[in-house]
Design a protein around this nucleic acid. Structure first.
Lengths: 241, 241
DNA sequence: CGTCGGGTTGAACCCGTTCAAAGGGAGTGG
DNA sequence: CCACTCCCTTTGAACGGGTTCAACCCGACG
């Protein structure tokens, strides 16, 4: 079996391994991990990877495409907790749980590397660096959540939208993509949900920013014209409050 | 040294060990952990346990008292990320980092058990249950943050305050304390900051709830009169939106 | 008794929501 | 190739809840 595994499934050969795992991971560590990773699987748009209540079996590293994670609230409404791009890992919020507490849905055609949680747990007993990495990405998510929480609690609609755009831009930079050309894989409704705003408010904020000449908006494609001025608006809002 | 360690520092003898660690932890595991735990240290009101930028050396389990954790935003303002009570563990958002990204401040006279992060990391290589526990409490914090984020994003002031009170009540129940007698260790300003509201709004919400006969407010002491009706208001708000 | 800090109450303003309608682009069928 | 439709997005106008600014209250402490 393993002899026939396509080269593409070996993390070492994957251009994203420095994102999924620390750059410091050596060949040995990557090979050990590769042995756990199943053949990347493809998901169509709107297909769910896992769903609330499913038994928790794996983490998933995004290989291509994009997806959203959401929690279903008691009331039945959906709260989108995050959008994930290639090189990012989903399922951390279910670590240590027997069942999934969230749902992951592909926003477009997406391929994922499956990291079985049993294997990951065991391997991280042997590779301190892997355990440290898991702690690190989980704590990073925690810290990012704090910032997002402050955003939701305090920031104006414009600042929320700008923060999101700049965050996306920064993540593209990590993947060595252009920082000023964004393609939003999610619709306005999902974006609004994630930012805690009404759909119309997001649209208005984008239009306003476009009117001010800071960005160009064309459907799901957004071009950042003046990144510095965008950053200033975020800072200005923080300073004023 | 260890021969003279007071019995009180042995986790096995501490009434809170089922909160700090899973109830399933056996005597062996608790003893291994106890060897790591330094003498509980005391902090006065407003004293900081660790501060943004400090080197990250330990997690801390609350033994008595209460404290808040906060992040300092670029603008210089403080966002309070959580309040912690006996049996709860702080510092998880710094796991895997070399330096603290948050600040922990005692809200009253507080004693903490220090869990050196090096020791914890190494021990969790040997005790899969400990590693699993760490993953679990981190993922639990993640999931709680998602709920809080939704609260901040969508919920009315009243719902935010009620959710906080009910959450506090639930945590008291875990510690086998009365669920209807709350003592808020933080001031209105901290509470408002944490809930993403203006100080005045929190005060108004509490007054309103008191007028409606659902709670009794006397400074920092709050008595819950009709827990069910409080829960209904939260559910009602969710349903309406 | 006076002062001080935290908490409460009051009134006006502002931003985001809500409801409503129009605009636009992709896909389908003629 | 165009016309039609559907869905997503944009734009408009009025409403409402939370913030803000301001005054007041109250218990603690000197």
């Amino acid at each position: 079996m393993t002899a026939f595994r396509p080269a593409a499934t070996r993390c070492l050969d994957c251009g994203l391994h420095k994102l999924c795992f620390p750059p410091s991971f050596d060949e040995h560590a990557l090979n050990r991990i590769s042995q756990l990773v199943a053949q990347p699987s493809a998901f169509a748009k709107n297909e769910t990877v896992y769903r609330l209540g499913d038994s928790m079996t794996a983490l998933y590293a995004v290989r291509s495409g994009a997806l959203k994670t959401s929690v279903l609230l008691p009331s039945g409404e959906e709260q989108i907790t995050g959008f994930y791009l290639p090189g990012e890992v989903i399922g951390l919020d279910n670590m240590g749980q027997s069942h999934c507490a969230s749902t992951a849905t592909a926003l477009e055609k997406t391929t994922l590397c499956e990291l079985p949680v049993n294997g990951i747990s065991q391997l991280s007993q042997q590779l301190p660096e892997l355990q440290g990495h898991l702690f690190q990405i989980m704590s990073t998510e925690l810290r990012q959540d704090y910032q997002r929480m402050h955003l939701m609690a305090q920031a104006s609609a414009e600042v929320r939208v700008v923060s999101f755009l700049l965050g996306l831009s920064a993540r593209q930079q990590q993947r060595h993509l252009a920082t000023n050309e964004l393609r939003l894989s999610m619709g306005r409704a999902d974006l609004a949900n994630h930012l805690g705003l009404a759909l119309e408010t997001v649209s208005r904020a984008l239009s306003q920013l476009a009117d001010d000449g800071l960005i160009e908006v064309s459907g799901k494609s957004i071009r950042i014209i003046h990144a510095e001025q965008l950053a200033e608006r975020v800072a200005a809002d923080c300073h004023s409050s």
